[in-house]
Structures are given as C-alpha cells and as structure tokens.
Design a protein around this nucleic acid. Structure first.
Lengths: 210, 210
DNA sequence: GGTGTTAATTAAACAATGTTAAGTTAACGT
DNA sequence: ACGTTAACTTAACATTGTTTAATTAACACC
C-alpha cells in the first residue's frame, strides 16, 4: 500500500524480480503455469502491477528468453577457443544439445514456438553479433571450416551447411523434448541419437579426404 | 430445438461434421482459433452439444489428428511399391516433408506438441501396424535396407538409423514451420535444405561401397 | 391414447485467464 | 500548503473450457 518514488535502478530490480519469479514457474512447470496472477503472487504484487513493467505476457516471456538466448550464445562463444575447426563444430553441437535438453521449456519457447520471433526479442540482442547471436556464431565457425576446404566442394554455400547441421541437432532435441517417454516409439538412448546424428552429418558433408 | 432420437449412423455423422468444422478452423487459423464456441457456431449447435460427442477439447483434437495420422501412413504405404530399398527411403523422406509443409498445423499438433501423445490417439490406430503407423512403416523400410547390408556395418541397430533419418527430416521441417520468414536467419530455399539433409544423412549412414 | 422415461439439446452459470479502467495513497515540486 | 504525479490496488470485462440444471420432443408401454 505505501508507494514511494523509485529510482531507475529500483525499477530494474523489480523488473528482474518479476522475471525471476516467472522463470521459476516456467522452468518448473512449463509455459502454461506462467500466469500473470501466479507470477504476481510469487513476487508480492498485484497482477496489474506487472503491466507497469511489461506490455503484456508475451513481452514478459520474450524478456525471459532473451536472457537465455544470451546464455546460449555465451556458451558457444567459449568454444571458439578450440583450435581445430571440425572438432570445434562437434563440441558446439553437443553444447547446443545439452542446452536444449537441460532447459527444455526455454528451448521450446525459443525454437519450437512461432509466436515469439527471435528477431523481436528484448534485451538488445543484435542479429549477426556473434557475442549475442548463437546462429551467427555457428555461421562463423562453419565459414572458417568451409574456407579451409573441409567440406565437399560441390556444396557452394556455407550457410546451407550451417542450416543443415542446426536442423539435424534441432530434430533430435525437438523430438526428444516432445516425445520423450512416448511408448509409441522404442527410442534409442538420447546420447546415442545425438552422436549418431552428428557423426552421420559430418561424414556426409565433409570432404572424403578427412 | 427439436430433438429426435438419432441412430448410431446419425451420431457418427454429427461427430464428423464437428470434426470437419474444427478442421477447417484449425487448418486456416491454427490451434488457437479452434474454440469450442466457434466450432459449435460453425456446425449449428450450442457449445455444450460438443461435449456429447467428445470428452473435452483435447479429445476432439486427438480425433482430428488421428485422421491425418492415418493419411500420412497411407501415403507412406503407397511408397512400398518402389523396389529399390534406398530410393524408397528417399522418396519416403520427401513425402514426409511434403506432408509436414502442406499441413503445418497438423504437423505441429502431431509432432511438435507434447500434450497429445500419439499413443493415446483415438480412431483405433494400432502401434506397429504399418498400415496405420507411419513410424512402423519407416522402421520396416529401414530394416529391409539394413538386412540387405546397405548401411555401415558399425551401426548395430536399424532403429537408430530410422530415428536419425526421422530426426533429420523433422529438424528441417520443424524449423521451417516455426521460423519461416524469420529475418533472424537468411534461409536457403526449403527444398534445398530438405535435399541436402537427405543427401548428407544417406552419405553418412550408407556403406561406402554404394 | 395417455403417461412416464429417456435421448437430444440448450441456456445459465462457474472458474480461470489476460487485460483495462478507475480509484487510492503517498511522495515530490513549487 | 497544495496540486501533480508515480506506484500501486481493487473491481471489472471479455474470452476461454467446462458443468449443472433445465427443456423439449420422441419413444415404449399399459
């Protein structure tokens, strides 16, 4: 009941408290559990107060994802220090899968949900900046390997290689997230599927001489 | 207002009229447009009447999907007549992608949504029956090629090959459905991506001698 | 042929959701 | 001292899925 004028820093703090509460619900119980009322209760405000910090629920979720999108890019970034361009790509793929499977709800929202175009994400993420954009990071790594002549010479576009590698990993992870434990399919172990996908794509895309 | 006692056939007809109305909304405007009230209006009943034919909304959607799941399996089935086991797999993959991209809303509900386990689908679909189960169909085709010695001999499980091929196609299609037109990524043409995925996986999984 | 049961249907209502409109209260500037 | 404004809340609205309680016509039977 007692409102006081807040500094910009205090406002930011409330904003991030809201995001933390939302994240906790989100991670634990999925996107449907993230109701404005429940977030508000958790953070000690009335539901309407959230609208002072976020335009609407989608805006709030976008802000949530922006944070984790940056975390993903950060992880990719650290991998650049590996010297061998192909080993680097392999490690990157496995790091991507690990992110997906240990944050399935985030992964679903980032890469399996249409309503939220990455492009419009909050948090000042810049397209093409490898520090912030995991796809740019992948493109960069593929291009280095491509220019070093690692890939089949009949493939003209390095972006096609990047998109194929991404799609392969995405396919394994997305099916795992969506259909894990579904008795319809007798799944091989997820790690086996990840490594097989990686191995098969690399064999299929690299120059024979490797 | 004038209720008359209905035969079983008439009930089935209403049920399928409801499904048709729901499908129309669903295909045109996605799952969010499928509200019980709107279906009811389209089919000329009150919203509550739908509950005489379906337990709840999820049940209705499952029935919707069962139909299209069968259609998918039917398409796969027709491909069995191709003699060459590898060409057969390639054609199957492209048919799968065509299904996904021409019925994106169905594909999303069938393969990108967790709430609806294939296993519990209505319509009497039997697991493992290749006439009705597209995955069983894939497994069967892969196993034939596997037993004919088409694949690398260090891969011991044919199901691992099937799951990798599926995941690869799924990855391309799911990313296309989710991120088509997203300016974040400069996509190569979708057909190119499909063919590249198929080509790369086959090169990576088949015996060298092929 | 009346009469009670039942099947088909609906209108009204409930609870949950995102969101908006209209207050309320305390701090600040002048 | 006093109006304005920032920070918040309570009440309310619209939309959803779903349930309860009628209503109404057809059928079965004596």
């Amino acid at each position: 009941m007692p409102p006081r004028h807040k500094s910009e820093a205090e406002k930011q703090q409330i904003r991030s408290a809201v995001l933390d509460a939302a994240r906790e619900l989100f991670v634990a119980r999925g996107v449907d559990a993230v109701t404005m009322r429940e977030i508000a209760k958790k953070v000690g405000y009335s539901p309407t107060a959230l609208y002072l910090h976020f335009a609407d629920k989608e805006d709030l979720l976008k802000a949530l994802c922006a944070t984790d999108f940056l975390a993903l890019a950060d992880g990719m970034n650290a991998i650049m220090k590996i010297a061998d361009p192909i080993e680097r790509l392999n490690v990157m793929g496995r790091a991507y899968a690990e992110f997906a499977l240990s944050h399935p709800n985030h992964y679903r929202l980032l890469f399996m949900t249409p309503q939220i175009p990455c492009d419009a994400m909050d948090g000042g993420i810049e397209k093409g900046n490898p520090d912030q954009d995991a796809y740019a990071q992948l493109m960069h790594m593929v291009k280095l390997a491509f220019d070093a002549g690692c890939f089949r010479e009949d493939i003209k576009e390095s972006s096609l290689i990047a998109q194929t590698l991404w799609a392969g990993m995405h396919g394994v992870c997305a099916l795992e997230i969506t259909k894990q434990g579904d008795p319809w399919v007798d799944w091989q172990p997820i790690l086996t599927r990840i490594l097989t996908m990686q191995d098969a794509l690399m064999r299929g895309l690299l120059r024979q001489s490797n």
